[in-house]
Design a protein around this nucleic acid. Structure first.
Lengths: 145, 145
DNA sequence: ATATAAAATTGTAATTATTACAATTCCGTA
DNA sequence: TACGGAATTGTAATAATTACAATTTTATAT
């Protein structure tokens, strides 16, 4: 299915910008911030405005075509993978990873919600990612230089 | 145990301000933002500075005496209840609720973490809280006024 | 009690992310 | 081809957080 059609299935009118942004999200399976989306696309879309990026990402989330992650305190980031899956934030490098391998119990809504109506669940892990852990291990091996 | 002692057990030197802040967090089991802590304590602590609130809350989190929640996109909020428990954010009123009644599977760390070292887990729900849901129901009953 | 040094607190200014809003551009339809 | 509504843009405003230097507090040694 083309990005054009994909947007339509989510009731999003597929404009130039929206197609480009969604294409970017779908292609690069990173978890970009609004800023990142802007700076990566801006070179090839000279007229793109940051406001459009914010508006469009918000629209995607409203229409269920992307999810917003608040795992990083500093800024929201976005994920075009709308299947329920856990996320991991490395406190060292700030990168956000998918964690599809987490058992999926948590995705089911609890029986007792105190009367609250739930329409979203997210599971966040934080710590040190593999790469950063390896770097730190190396540093310790040769402490003096 | 006094708040004074409580801070000591977390290796936090118990200054006036730290005691007051921690007391506030422990007493009011809300999930205040830094701003909220400041505006609620400021009347009784005329010299209190917002920077101190930020510094102190960050210290509490570092020392494991409180946890920071990023469930609300706009600003971090803090919880002196450091037991693992789920949280619910009402998108209508912005309030954050504890959800101790959620089955605790999610709290266990997954076997396969792709090599990442996990030291924190948080489970977030979002939706409409009971109060807001009731309000909305009432509105629908008498639509014209 | 007093001097001293380190740690904590404060106030201000800077930074960063996000939103508000008015002006302009784009696009489908008559 | 003109019109009108939606989308996009740029700028300015807002809000949360941090940086940092100056001041105050606190604990300790004299």
């Amino acid at each position: 299915m083309s990005t054009y059609e994909y947007l339509l299935t989510h009731e999003i009118k597929p404009s130039q910008q929206r197609i480009c942004l969604m294409e970017f999200l779908l292609k690069h399976r990173i978890h970009p911030t609004a800023e990142e989306v802007y700076s990566r696309l801006s070179p090839s879309m000279p007229t793109l405005s940051k406001t459009t990026v914010y508006n469009t990402l918000k629209l995607f989330v409203q229409k269920g075509a992307a999810q917003m992650l608040t795992i990083d305190e500093r800024n929201a980031c976005f994920d075009a993978d709308i299947t329920k899956h856990a996320h991991f934030l490395c406190k060292e490098c700030g990168k956000v990873y998918d964690l599809h391998e987490v058992p999926s119990h948590w995705q089911q809504l609890p029986e007792d919600t105190l009367g609250h109506l739930i329409d979203e669940v997210q599971l966040y892990y934080r710590g040190t990612c593999r790469k950063c852990a390896e770097k730190q291990a190396k540093k310790k091996l040769k402490p003096t230089k």
